[in-house]
Write a protein that binds this DNA or RNA. Structure first.
Lengths: 209, 209
DNA sequence: CCTTTCATCAAGCATTTGATTGAATAGATG
DNA sequence: CATCTATTCAATCAAATGCTTGATGAAAGG
C-alpha cells in the first residue's frame, strides 16, 4: 500500500479534467469547434466554469487537447488496420481495412464515433497544429498506395493518391452524415456489404469501359 | 420612359438587400451557419446592422434566404446536367454529368463555388426547411438510378442508392476541402481526368474481383 | 411647398460569450 | 494540532452577440 498511495485531491482533479475532455469531445463531434461554449461543456461535465481555465488554461486549449486526443486514437486504429495489408491484398481487402475503424465506430457508437466525427470535421476545417500529425497520415497513405500500385499497375501515382483521398472523403462524409441516415445503427455485416464494394470501386476506378 | 419609371429609393433598397444576401452567401460558404455574425455580414456588405432586421427580419432569416437561394441555383444546375442522360449512357457519362456542376463551380470559383459549399455543408448540418427541396433531390436521384440500373443490372437497388449517396458525398467532400487541396484552381480537363474515373468506379463498385 | 414614405444610420438595449478573482473547502504534511 | 496545498466555487469582468430605437436624409406624391 506504500507506493499505491495517491493524493486524493490530485486524483479528483484528474477526474474532472478527464470529464471535461470527454464532454468537449462529445460536443465537438456533434457541433464542431464553432458551436461549443464554455458553459455547455462545464455543465455537461458537471464542473465549474473556472475548471477549464484551471486545468487547461482556456477553452481553446481544452478543445485542442480533445481534438489531439481524438486524432491519436484514430491514427492508432487506422494504422493498425492498414498496416496488416500485404502487397498481395485485393482491393476488397484494402477497402475493408481502410474502412474498419470507421465501421467499428459506427457499430459501437458512443465516444468512438465522436472521435471519428472530430477527425472527419478536421478534414474540412483543419485545426491549427493539425500538421503535427502529417507524418502519421503519410504513413497510412503510403501503405494504401503500396497495395493500390500492386493492384493497378497501369494507373499513374497521382491518380492513385487522388483516389485514396476520395475514399477517405467518402468515409468521412458518411461519418459526418446526420444520424438516422443509411448506415448508422446497422450491423457490421450490413455496413460492410454496402460500403466495401463502393469503396473498392472508388479505388479501382472505371478502368474497364 | 413611362412604364420604365421606378422608385429610386426602392431600387436602392433592393440593391443593399442583394448585397446582404451575397455577403451572407460568401460567409456561410466559408464558415458555416455557426460562424457568421451580424456585424461581419453588414460590414462586408457595406450596410448598417439595422439593414438586416429591416430587409429580412433577423440574421437567421437572412441566412435562411441565402441558403435557399443557393439550393435553388444548385438544384437547377444539377437537374439540367443529369436530365440529359439517356438509359444508354455509360457510367463515365453518368459520372461526368453528376459532377458537372461541381467541376464548373471549382473552375469558375467565386460565388458559384460558394453556392456549392453551402449545399455541401447542408448535407452535414441540414438547415431547417431543407426538406422543402426533398422532391427536387429525389428527381435527380431517380435520373441517376435509372442510368445505374441500365448499366449494373445485377446489383440491388439498395446498393445503387447507397452508391449514389457515396458519389454525392465524395463530391461534397472535395468541395468542402480547404482551398489549396488537390483540385482547386486546376483546369476543367485536369479535374475531369482525375475525378470522373474515381466517381465512375464508385458507381460501378468492385463487381469483378 | 408641404407631407408622406422609404431607407439608412448612430446609439443603445439585454443577453451571452470566455475569462478572472478571492474566498471557501478538503485533503496532505509535519 | 496547525500549516500548507490543490481544487472548487460564486461572483464578476469586459467584449461580442442579435436586435431595437428614434432621428435623419432623400426621394415621391399631391
Amino acid at each position: 500500500m506504500a507506493s499505491a498511495k495517491v493524493d486524493q485531491r490530485r486524483e479528483a482533479g484528474l477526474r474532472t479534467r478527464a470529464r471535461l475532455m470527454d464532454a468537449a469531445l462529445d460536443l465537438l463531434a456533434e457541433r464542431g469547434e464553432e458551436g461549443v461554449s464554455l458553459r455547455e461543456i462545464t455543465s455537461a461535465a458537471d464542473a465549474n466554469v473556472a475548471a477549464v481555465s484551471y486545468h487547461f488554461g482556456s477553452l481553446k486549449a481544452l478543445c485542442g487537447a480533445a481534438v489531439e486526443q481524438a486524432l491519436e486514437r484514430y491514427l492508432e486504429a487506422q494504422q493498425e488496420a492498414v498496416g496488416t495489408l500485404g502487397p498481395e491484398s485485393t482491393l476488397d481487402a484494402l477497402a475493408a481495412a481502410f474502412a474498419r475503424p470507421m465501421i467499428s465506430a459506427m457499430v459501437v457508437g458512443g465516444r468512438d464515433l465522436a472521435v471519428m466525427r472530430i477527425v472527419a470535421r478536421g478534414g474540412i476545417d483543419p485545426p491549427e497544429g493539425w500538421h503535427r500529425f502529417d507524418a502519421a497520415f503519410d504513413l497510412v497513405r503510403a501503405d494504401v498506395l503500396r497495395v493500390l500500385k500492386a493492384n493497378l499497375s497501369g494507373v499513374k501515382d497521382r491518380e492513385l493518391i487522388f483516389r485514396t483521398r476520395c475514399a477517405a472523403g467518402l468515409i468521412n462524409w458518411l461519418i459526418l452524415a446526420p444520424p438516422g441516415a443509411d448506415l448508422h445503427k446497422r450491423s457490421r455485416k450490413q455496413i460492410e456489404e454496402l460500403l466495401i464494394p463502393a469503396l473498392a470501386g472508388t479505388f479501382r476506378g472505371q478502368s474497364s469501359v
